[in-house]
């Protein structure tokens, strides 16, 4: 049976030529290497918690501590409103997708350079590297989600049917991270400056997203411009799905998704264009 499967998947002949055309993504090759994608994600998750005393608890502890600090600073000191919800849950519901996104962006942005030893020694579709890097934080998200459920129980917040839409918002966050990560990681191969830009970018991006504050405090006339940031749609979606907050504006979601798709397509073209030179200049 296995042999039969291998025969079907085997590409009988490989043609090696100087690259032609701008946009040719070999979906068949990506599919053939899907197991490697799995192993790369598996590796990232494993090594993250190797030789740590509390292991995967870090995935929970980090957003939890951030949430406590936010509650203290933004809710108690600065009196930032939270749309009538308990601020800790309000912040935590945003920190889940935000942490996931920022991790994915951070890892995918430096993924090619971090895997230079693979790129110069073996062939596989290079796209798998940033893809794996953007997917692996979802595992952390899963663990902190359990904590969120406990918090909802504590505050007596009942889950709604909106919860079923969560995977869509997670996917949007991942795609956003991949879209930007593709640009950054490709640039990083040639210009190591990108490595210094990423932490700064993430910091700025967090303040440009409604993590610590509600969208409602953003002036109405700036809303459309504001929603060019895809994380606005994602975080709004999370709060809606978890807390039963106001349903995100369709317009916001459409704008966010369009931005993501445009960035992603552009990133793919740029990535594929540069891919052939990775091994030579990395």
């Amino acid at each position: 049976m296995e042999l039969a499967a291998e025969n079907i998947l085997r590409k009988p002949s490989v043609v090696i030529e100087p690259g032609k055309g701008l946009f040719q993504i070999d979906l068949i090759a990506l599919w053939r290497y899907r197991e490697l994608l799995y192993f790369l994600v598996w590796r990232d998750v494993l090594i993250r918690y190797k030789q740590t005393a509390i292991g995967v608890c870090w995935a929970v502890l980090q957003p939890l501590v951030t949430m406590l600090i936010f509650t203290l600073v933004f809710s108690n000191f600065a009196n930032i409103p939270s749309d009538g919800k308990p601020y800790p849950v309000f912040a935590f519901a945003a920190l889940l997708p935000w942490n996931c996104f920022s991790q994915a962006l951070q890892r995918s942005g430096s993924s090619l350079v971090g895997n230079a030893n693979l790129i110069t020694k073996i062939y596989f579709p290079r796209l798998l590297i940033p893809m794996a890097a953007s997917v692996s934080p979802v595992v952390d998200l899963f663990f902190s989600f359990i904590v969120l459920l406990a918090m909802m129980l504590w505050y007596g917040i009942l889950p709604t049917w909106g919860l079923l839409a969560l995977p869509l918002f997670v996917a949007l966050a991942m795609l956003s991270a991949l879209a930007v990560g593709l640009w950054l990681t490709t640039l990083n191969v040639k210009y190591r400056d990108v490595g210094h830009i990423i932490p700064f970018l993430i910091q700025v991006w967090m303040y440009a997203s409604p993590v610590a504050y509600p969208v409602s405090i953003v002036p109405e006339k700036w809303r459309l411009f504001y929603s060019l940031n895809p994380m606005v749609g994602v975080i709004e979606g999370f709060r809606w799905a978890i807390l039963g907050a106001q349903r995100p504006d369709w317009m916001v979601l459409v704008v966010s998704s369009t931005v993501v798709v445009a960035l992603l397509l552009g990133g793919l073209v740029y990535f594929k264009h540069m891919e052939q030179t990775f091994a030579d200049i990395i």
Binding site: R10, K11, V14, E17, P18, I47, K50, Q276, A279
Partner: peptide, 30 residues
């Protein structure tokens, strides 16, 4: 297929395995 030729063409029939190094991708922590 790690790097591309500048000119010319090559064709390989069959599944290709290459070992330019042993232990590519080994991770010390694993």
């Amino acid at each position: 297929r790690i790097t591309q030729p500048t000119l010319g063409r090559a064709e390989i029939n069959g599944r290709v395995g290459s070992l330019l190094e042993v232990g590519t991708g080994f991770h010390p922590e694993l």
